[in-house]
């Protein structure tokens, strides 16, 4: 996904393809919505219907969000180095140096 261009102008002619939507599905009460894919739809209502048919056919969900893909700003792949590599050698940021009592169970 490329970074949203703020200077982009809407196309003069009507879109040949419907806009793209990102679909998020919550699989159970209490869990968070997870990104599961994308689809083309004319508007939000239709995107919800289609998300229901494409992504929840096998009982995957109890709730669906759809978000216009254009509304998502993404980090650029060629900035991967400066964005993510500095975190690689800072193992003290992981809370692995604590003794956890057995009674706490899985954390």
């Amino acid at each position: 996904m490329s970074q949203a261009d703020p200077k982009a102008t809407p196309p003069a002619t009507p879109l040949k393809e419907w806009p793209l939507w990102e679909v998020f599905v919550r699989s159970k009460q209490g869990l968070e919505h997870k990104h599961c894919g994308s689809l083309h739809a004319a508007d939000a209502g239709q995107a919800l219907n289609m998300a229901r048919d494409v992504y929840t056919r096998r009982q995957e969900g109890v709730s669906i969000w759809v978000v216009p893909s254009a509304a998502i700003s993404a980090s650029a792949p060629d900035e991967k180095g400066l964005f993510f590599e500095p975190a690689a050698d800072k193992i003290y940021r992981h809370p692995t140096f604590y003794e956890i009592p057995d009674q706490v169970g899985h954390m």
């Binding site: 083309h40 289609m50 494409v54 056919r57």
Partner: peptide, 8 residues
């Protein structure tokens, strides 16, 4: 007519 509708 479109992939999503095919599935629907």
């Amino acid at each position: 007519p479109i992939l999503e509708e095919d599935l629907a």
